[in-house]
């Protein structure tokens, strides 16, 4: 499974998001090595500048991985990430880059298999529309 593939940046929140990735690692579930994890304290910390920077630096896709809306560790989910996600999707659309290159995924804590499935589906979607990304 560890073939080189589309270069993906995952911004994972420090709580449920990261726990999914840790569980995936503990269970020995594999996902492509081209997936780079960036840990952030909360997804609300991620803004369009960071996402666009990842694309500027050559990422083929960016995944935002965080807690479920009601499960935010900071009790009140501000909805900021939704705003930034929509905004960035629209910018990508204007740039003619496919909006599919950006995903916002919310998973319950410790869902390792869920994360691996989501990231693999995401990569498959990108490689299907953008075969050059697979190399």
């Amino acid at each position: 499974m560890n073939k080189p593939g589309a270069s993906i940046v995952v911004f994972a929140c420090n709580w449920d998001g990261l726990s999914c990735i840790e569980v995936a690692a503990q269970k020995g579930l594999s996902y492509p090595a081209s997936v780079k994890i960036v840990r952030v304290s909360c997804l609300s910390r991620v803004h369009s500048g960071l996402i666009l920077k990842a694309f500027e630096l050559g990422a083929n896709g960016v995944m935002l991985l965080g807690c479920s809306r009601s499960g935010c560790h900071f009790e009140i989910e501000s909805g900021l990430i939704e705003q930034e996600y929509e905004k960035t999707r629209n910018i990508l659309g204007l740039l003619g880059l496919r909006e599919k290159k950006l995903a916002l995924i919310r998973l319950p804590g410790g869902d390792g298999p869920g994360f691996v499935k989501q990231v693999n589906d995401f990569i498959a979607g990108i490689e299907q529309t953008e075969p050059a990304a697979a190399q």
Partner: peptide
């Protein structure tokens, strides 16, 4: 230090790509 998290600079540099086909 760029304002708006560097979003505008990143956008400008993305626009510099040769294969760009904008839908603007």
């Amino acid at each position: 230090q760029c304002n708006h998290g560097g979003a505008i600079q990143a956008m400008m540099r993305l626009m510099a790509r040769g294969d760009l086909q904008q839908k603007r």
